[in-house]
Design a binder for these strands. Sequence first.
DNA 1: AAAGAAATTTAGACAAGGCTAAAATAATTT
DNA 2: AAATTATTTTAGCCTTGTCTAAATTTCTTT
Lengths: 219, 219
Amino acid sequence: MLSQSIEDYLKAIYEIESSEGKVSTSALSEKLGVSPASVTSMVKKLSERKLITHKRYQGVKLTPAGRKIALEIIRHHRLVELYLKEALGVPWDQVHQEAEKWEHVLSEDLEDRIDKFLGYPVTDPHGSPIPRRDGTMIVRQCNALVDVEPDTLVKVVEVSDHDPELLRYLGGIGLYPETEMTVVSKQPFKGPIIVELTGKEHPIGRNAAKYIMVEKARN
Amino acid sequence: MLSQSIEDYLKAIYEIESSEGKVSTSALSEKLGVSPASVTSMVKKLSERKLITHKRYQGVKLTPAGRKIALEIIRHHRLVELYLKEALGVPWDQVHQEAEKWEHVLSEDLEDRIDKFLGYPVTDPHGSPIPRRDGTMIVRQCNALVDVEPDTLVKVVEVSDHDPELLRYLGGIGLYPETEMTVVSKQPFKGPIIVELTGKEHPIGRNAAKYIMVEKARN
DNA sequence: AAAGAAATTTAGACAAGGCTAAAATAATTT
DNA sequence: AAATTATTTTAGCCTTGTCTAAATTTCTTT
């Protein structure tokens, strides 16, 4: 059995690997909210256990074994997020923090029951793909909203779950995964991006728009 | 926030207090599966935090604050047990071990949602009363099956959840809380107790019968 | 290319929560 | 009542996962 700490590190490494490519000590330190020195010592332990590889002063990489575990945890996390929303009506801006705790205590049996209850879902409430039991995961091709040209019809693919505040705002304007909307304009001087959905226009800050992934709608 | 360990100790103390009256170091050691020395040191910590009182070489007692916490954990445990059975179809002999983990990660918000989903239930799948949020709990008056005279019609009130094996057997013969049955006979030489339910007779060992609580059925 | 800045690692400490072995106290037997 | 046995506590150690401060190494700037 792996400690919760180890699971958290592996998950964080996976996530940074996906978004940044390189996984540095400081990035991990930042993400996990622990000191760089603590990261170094845990990295040493994870290397010894062959869950990651590590070259001093250069980053860290998951081994296949480590990646498998990371994906199991992420699977737990995302299944639980969706379950809490569907079965218990937990609002989408709260499911993440609950799932952070639940992901570590979910038995295989319960994982299967939840998966079945939900009808073997493919994405969580934020549009993130749910890894399969075998450790594979379908990644959808998409762009950050901030990079889309004005006058484009797009479909929301995925929204980052890291900021509840943002999720509440987006929920308020009806912006969810699978929603279609038009990028109306990008205001100059790093101003907001204006999108139109359900007939209304809404401003979305550039920073927030980095965390909203979309694809061109076929039209 | 309290550590999982502290929560486990408080719950164990509550349970031993209920069933044995006196809570000794060795009883705790046994129940929690840790050495007596470990219990002593944790007891010291819990005393300092005013969650229990302790006189050297005599037992331990919960303070009102400690009891409140113990009951909160037990409330979590029992709500989760029932929830897993009702919402996800987990068999009653498995809900206990799942709940042992979940009881520590349940937020107040989720507790309320589960409580509501279940229609504010009063007992868990084993018939144990679910403490209310305010820290009160209704205790039903009952006797161990082993102490009942033959030829009595009884109603099952509660079955201990500590042994999955026993629960599977009882489930197999249809013996659940609220079930009515007749105590047919007590075989001599510490032999089994014979009960009749749904027209069939079934033997129940004396030891098992200590863990089945019943009340006289009104008839 | 050297200096300064930033990132990483090492060294050493600490808190939690466990353990074993030995000492102290209480309970039981003779 | 003394001796033996059982229970509880103390003393000291270990592991996990964290921290700070100091030493390295790498990167950036001049």
